[in-house]
Design a protein around this nucleic acid. Structure first.
Lengths: 345, 345
DNA sequence: GTGAAAGCGCTAACAA
DNA sequence: TTGTTAGCGCTTTCAC
């Protein structure tokens, strides 16, 4: 049962004062080598561990990092959030932190800000990790104003990135660029893009990579792009629209696996719409984004984000903000995704 | 910036002592109505919130519930854990708790026990929520010995359930029973089962439901069962084995969506093995377990566990253990799953 | 019903 | 280099 061992017990057993024990643990360089060893031996022997609540009272630091667990959306893209949380938790433990979960009751930035406020008032996490930054993100300004440390998975889309807060992101444009080049290398010439409505940083970024890749080989994009809500059924409809409108399209790059899954419903089975429209069935290659379990299950080629790396970079960035220490990680980090090629394209 | 408001500030502003403020908040029935109102008004006005670290020092209670976030396995079945965590987090917030994540570095029960020990020494969570109980689970005995409160998602498979700890579980046998009846109602008579090696509580339970449903209509199960590791490729091989061995089989109940996905690879496309074996292609119905996003994406009929309910029940059970209060939730709760019928069966 | 005193375990500041 | 003092914010005694 090993009843709570306090610093006083260690001090007594080692024949030193409590402060010296504290120093031996937290500021070893200030304690004589021999004393330090003796103290650490006793610590080991008694199984002493600091009481973080007590420490927090003194230092104001909880060693808690708050992160949001979101509702699972369509369950397809949701897996990204879960991989991210897992990565955070592992790196946090290595850095001496723990991840505290929260959800936002109300929607949007304000709902999440209310959660910040609750958390800060009660458990006082030392920092936040935010996902899914967007234009005019009110969460980041709220935290900045209050001097609460945080990192985001996602660029600050509105501000000049140089001025903003620390962030880690994946280069979405590089991902769709790679996807498009891959399709080009397989002989496709008219390659469409299925994306989200303009105005979302992430969506625009992904579309840009596709545009750029086509432009570089002298191909235009007129009539090759359509936008829709990020879900399977809308994706299917949008794909049908695009393919019906332009019979020359032989491949589609999609902004998400959800959209790609919808597109595959059209691309793999000859839909009645085509026959009705007079277009015979033709094979249409499809590439998704995120490499979710669904992509793997159905053989969908997809752009994979290095989520584990993003998570550990976020956490190391935070740990450095909070604890300092050697080797400051970059304030801003843009990681390259990779293309996972499967049967669909 | 609203600098930390302490209980002393409230006491001063309300013209009472600090204890009275504390009482008004924590033991309202002991404070005169009028005083209580005045105090609460000031609390509101000043935006006072208890400092949990300070409270923890006095009471020894952190209002933290620890839960494990596991590695995503094959990413298919993993989604269950994520839905569970999400549910926990929401109910926890409603009960005034927060969810603290941990991972186990080393594998198995001992790895997780090491994590318990770390957590208990540092952040001192008030309780744990455990997933995936199994025969001879050492985690539960470790916690019990130390008097640490916990609930499990999963029955205590080894002990007589009456004697064990609080738990919430889903009736897996009822799920496969329902799946089997559904297939029977569609005219299937030889229905196989693709499961995990015997000895796992969950796997045996799911197999039992299938056996029971067949037995009730006077059908035997000899030669209709095969076992394998819980992943797609093994599932595919096992399904092929079963279907090759018995050409009469027209439907398969599977212990997981991973296995079912493997089975579908065999069931949907006429594989060369059948032709080689002389069996022509026949439609084989497949039912999975867990209703993962993959099941939805590929049109797989699957047994859905009410994960959200499991999570909130777990948390309410804990909250009652910790805080008491009215209406004790049941110590043991077995929830029924439901069958989500799709194209595969 | 309300107030005063004490102390949870720790570390920042200072004294020795 | 080590020890002493003080106090973080709260709640559990116990007087009043």
């Amino acid at each position: 049962m090993a009843d709570k061992v306090t610093i006083a017990d260690v001090a007594r057993a080692a024949g030193v004062s409590r402060q010296t024990v504290s120093n031996a643990l937290n500021t070893p360089e200030v304690v004589r080598e021999e004393t330090r060893r003796r103290v650490l031996d006793v610590v080991e022997e008694l199984g002493y561990r600091v009481n973080l609540a007590a420490r927090q009272m003194r230092t104001g630091r909880s060693r808690l990092i708050a992160a949001r667990i979101d509702p699972e959306q369509d369950g397809i893209n949701g897996s990204v959030g879960d991989r991210f949380l897992h990565g955070l938790t592992e790196t946090a433990a290595a850095e001496g932190y723990r991840v505290l979960l929260y959800t936002a009751k109300a929607n949007g930035d304000d709902g999440e800000i209310a959660a910040f406020d609750d958390l800060l008032g009660a458990h006082e996490p030392d920092a936040f990790v935010l996902m899914a930054t967007h234009h005019g993100d009110r969460r980041t300004s709220w935290l900045t104003e209050r001097g609460v440390p945080f990192v985001t998975f996602g660029r600050p889309w509105s501000e000049p990135t140089a001025a903003g807060h620390p962030w880690v992101d994946v280069d979405g444009a590089a991902g769709t660029d790679a996807a498009t080049r891959h399709l080009l290398s397989r002989g496709h010439r008219r390659i469409g893009f299925l994306g989200w409505p303009k105005g979302s940083g992430v969506g625009d970024d992904r579309r840009e990579g596709w545009r750029r890749a086509l432009a570089e080989v002298g191909l235009g994009t007129a009539g090759l792009f359509t936008e829709t809500e990020d879900d399977v059924a809308p994706g299917e409809q949008a794909a049908r629209r695009l393919l019906d409108a332009d019979p020359e399209i032989t491949a589609l790059v999609c902004a998400s696996d959800s959209l790609a899954l919808g597109a595959l419903h059209v691309a793999r089975a000859p839909g009645p719409a085509w026959h009705a429209g007079g277009h015979p069935h033709r094979p249409v290659a499809v590439v998704g984004f995120d490499d979710t379990p669904v992509a793997k299950a159905i053989g969908l080629t997809s752009v994979r984000q290095p989520i584990g790396e993003v998570a550990s970079s976020c956490l190391r960035q935070l740990a450095h903000q909070l604890d300092g220490g050697a080797g400051a990680p970059p304030e801003h980090l843009l990681l390259p995704p990779s293309l996972v090629v499967r049967a669909s394209g």
